[in-house]
């Protein structure tokens, strides 16, 4: 699979951008947290596309955001 570039994403429509990024992001999130990968990926997709692209290229940033999203998700579930 070719790396997703900023220009590829910029050429896509807004709703396509998130889908393109999501397809790349999901396998990475799955490796970190397989059980909640669907929810965490959905949360991360609410982040700006430009920041998501940086996360795709930076495992450390991605890992940090996944942990952050996980904490928010758990807090949200605790309130339910």
């Amino acid at each position: 699979q070719e790396p997703l570039t900023a220009s590829m994403v910029a050429a896509a429509l807004p709703h396509e951008q998130k889908q393109m990024i999501g397809e790349r992001l999901y396998p990475l999130v799955y490796e970190i947290h397989s059980q909640l990968a669907n929810k965490i990926t959905g949360m991360l997709l609410e982040i700006d596309s430009s920041e998501l692209l940086l996360m795709l290229e930076s495992p450390e940033s991605l890992h940090a955001k996944v942990e952050e999203a996980l904490a928010v998700l758990q807090a949200h579930q605790a309130m339910e």
Partner: peptide, 26 residues
């Protein structure tokens, strides 16, 4: 009420249009 489920966040499933996209492009 019964049968309530967590609707947030919109889950992403590979190959399936992401539900959260409804908020971006209605």
């Amino acid at each position: 009420s019964n049968g309530s489920s967590i609707s947030w966040p919109p889950e992403f499933h590979p190959g399936v249009p992401w539900k959260g996209l409804q908020n971006i492009d209605p």
